[in-house]
Design a protein around this nucleic acid. Structure first.
Lengths: 262, 262
DNA sequence: CGCCTAATTGATTAGAATCAAGCTTTGTGG
DNA sequence: CCACAAAGCTTGATTCTAATCAATTAGGCG
């Protein structure tokens, strides 16, 4: 019990100060990063690829941070859109709610990933963004961002790339939902998380799921029972070990083969 | 036979000169539109919302057109990305091919819709774009487009909106694939086509499907048999009449109720 | 410690896939 | 212009995957 509490606290600390060391900027573990130019996520976030001269412009743009407690919402479907949000720490899910109350998760967001881009078009958020754990985001006012992109062509390119990547990612999920079996979906999901944690500098073969079985099932178009059964089966078959939220990969190739070669 | 040939030709003519009359620009039915400023699709395509002063800039950008015969490819997965393509007439599907040869359709594109935006990120096309009938596209060189967006803020906004709309549209499809029954999917698909034809100025309650049952099934994550059975059932239930590719809506509300209120 | 949420596992059912056959339309070559 | 082949569509019978219903068990938190 106490043991579990300690483990959980360790995990959270790890999230707050990810072990990204590939960034040229030296990382100061004590002083909290308050700007892009000193943020350890700069290599994987909005400023990725920008010259350091331009980073100070972004710094001014992203001074506002927001802390969101586990379970709370960053924004809600129908809210006016005026900013993008970059995850600084923690994790989020974006949830659509139909009039009859059914919920559908459209995405999970890890540190360095940008939320809200689907709302640019009609200037209203289509979904709610809920924190899966205590989290923090950078607020990126969209009007000021687009003003800045006119001055910094590289930033414009980067924003186009970001939007494009979102489209491509969604296509991947459409593929998954439209033509994969339940076991392929779950394998693809786990591999996707692995890839994204690796990009953040974490181990690719061992991580903590931030979402419930129900969330996973909802996202993948499966029931929570099916997800649970598959987790058990993957474990029986020696592909992973899993207890609760903790997942360890034992046979990467086995999982990849299962998904096939999309 | 001859009859069929005539009907087909009529359909094609209709496609080439859509009955969009809501555009301020007078439409000249004889002189083929060769530029945005004289194109009858300007109200629903890339230049949507731009001042006419800026349209001439776009005209220069989009002088190159390409004709694609039915069944032929505009680009293929893996090709270098250097341009977006706006459908001028006809229709396209974008198709991903896995290494083991399975195909998956990620989208259908009608006149005024822009293809290739998923490729901006990694500068390679992820999918192939195949013409569903003899078609024509405007080639929009991406490097020149982004140069222009730096000069015309409204165009930048418009491009952001376009990308964003693609994301939102994909989310809609994810919803569909991830949480709808077969009949809901097909109903949603038909309603989506209806909405898009209406936007183009066509009748919303009567149109010709440009794709096979197999294409529809592939796109919706269903088999062609299921699609066929559902078309029959919708007809039996008085929701539509359908013979081959011709679809007529008889009960809009019935279809909407079926989809539910997403 | 006890409540509540999350997860596991089993039994049964339902929806869509698969397998299979026949029919219609379209396109082509003689 | 017709015949025939190929592609596309429809419908039926059967199978199988994942949903649903149901009962426990395990963990996290006040």
């Amino acid at each position: 019990m106490l043991n579990a509490a300690i483990r959980e606290s360790v995990v959270k600390t790890m999230v707050r100060f990810p072990a990204v060391r590939s960034v040229s900027q030296p990382v100061n573990g004590v002083r909290p990063a308050t700007s892009c130019s000193s943020c350890c996520l700069q290599g994987v976030c909005l400023p990725c690829g920008l010259a350091s001269a331009n980073l100070s412009d972004l710094d001014e743009l992203t001074t506002v941070k927001r802390r969101i407690a586990r379970g709370a919402s960053l924004y809600r479907g129908g809210d006016e859109f005026d900013a993008l949000y970059a995850v600084r720490s923690g994790a989020f899910k974006t949830v659509g709610v139909s009039r009859n109350g059914e919920e559908k998760i459209t995405g999970f967001y890890l540190p360095g990933e940008v939320m809200g881009m689907d709302a640019i078009n009609n200037e209203r958020h289509n979904y709610s963004a809920a924190a899966l754990e205590d989290s923090e985001v950078c607020v990126i006012p969209f009007a000021r961002l687009t003003a800045l992109t006119l001055r910094i062509p590289e930033l414009q390119q980067q924003l186009f790339r970001l939007l494009s990547r979102d489209i491509a990612r969604d296509h991947g999920l459409m593929l998954l939902l439209g033509s994969m079996t339940a076991e392929q979906r779950l394998a693809a999901f786990l591999l996707s998380l692995s890839r994204r944690y690796k990009r953040l500098g974490y181990a690719a073969d061992r991580f903590m799921l931030r979402m419930t079985r129900e969330d996973i099932g909802n996202y993948l178009g499966l029931t929570l029972e099916t997800v649970s059964r598959l987790m058990s089966r993957f474990q029986r078959d020696g592909l992973i070990t899993a207890q609760q939220r903790e997942v360890e990969f034992k046979d990467f190739d086995g999982l990849m083969d299962m998904v096939g070669h999309w």
